[in-house]
Amino acid sequence: MTRLLQTLMDGVAVGSLYALIALGYTMVYGILKFINFAHGDVFMLGAWVSFTLAATLGFAGGAPPWFAAPLVLLGSMALCGLLGFTVERLAYRPLRNAPRINVLITAIGVSLFIENTGQLEPIGWLAERGLAFPFGTRPQRMPALLPDATLFEVVGVQVKLVDVLVIGIAFALMGLLQWLVFGTKLGRAMRAVSHDPKTAALMGIDVDRVISFTFVVGSVLAAAAGFLAAEKYPSLNQPAHSTWILLGLKAFVAAVVGGIGNVRGAMAGGLLIGMVELFGAAYLSPQLRDVYVFSLLIVVLLVKPEGLLGKATVEKV
């Protein structure tokens, strides 16, 4: 029972991180129909920027002030949002009419660029002024900005504040996104562009702006996931570690399993992937946790290619 509850809670926590990242994939895919491979790297940057901000602002060591966590979170979200905007503007927009595979290769290029620039040694001039950027090849420890408290205990399972916050913030952001997409004018424009960019443009929607906005929102969510992951798993792997890409890929799998292009699907998919991974690892064998995720993907694609919450599209002649 203890183990079941423990696994359940871990699954939800891990799943909400996947869901946050998956949202970025699914929104970009919904609009541009391409897999933004660089999205996993934005997640990585979210974690590392959080670390660098926290270290530069002197929040490492001791008890950080209460505003440390929100400040670092918002700072990381803002910087990554800016990055998402820049990448879209410089690398993806010129390829708007190119075949999708070109955009995909560009995304791989951007991904390689971010990782390999990220692992360069800090620039001396900046480091002297207390800002270690880029991040270097060493793994680092994220300072604990959230208090390490146990909220309550149920049948031997300690419910930690960090986990509750991870789940809470993730769900709050997802709710916000839900409202943004379905409750605002901009959201309607996003859905229109996703449905048919040409017609949307004819209806007076500034397609480029909507796409830019989509990238910014996706990157901001990935940055938030990066911050939360860094708080939950404070020993940060170095920027070029393949684990970041793998996490990104699993989040993408979550987006596909839930039904790509579907915001609620991405959330459901994220949680499902988290559950499958954790329960598989706990009750079958931890060796094969990645196999469970990718097997689930293949099964879902073969049985219901449009994803769990996706709508089947009929090919038009």
């Binding site: 690398a91 010129p94 390829l95 290769i105 560009t106 290029g109 951007v110 390689l112 660029f113 620039t117």
Partner: peptide, 13 residues
């Protein structure tokens, strides 16, 4: 690897 990645992106553009 930075140069390689840049070359790739520039090439595509």
């Amino acid at each position: 690897m930075v140069v390689y990645a840049l070359a790739l992106v520039v090439m595509m553009l």
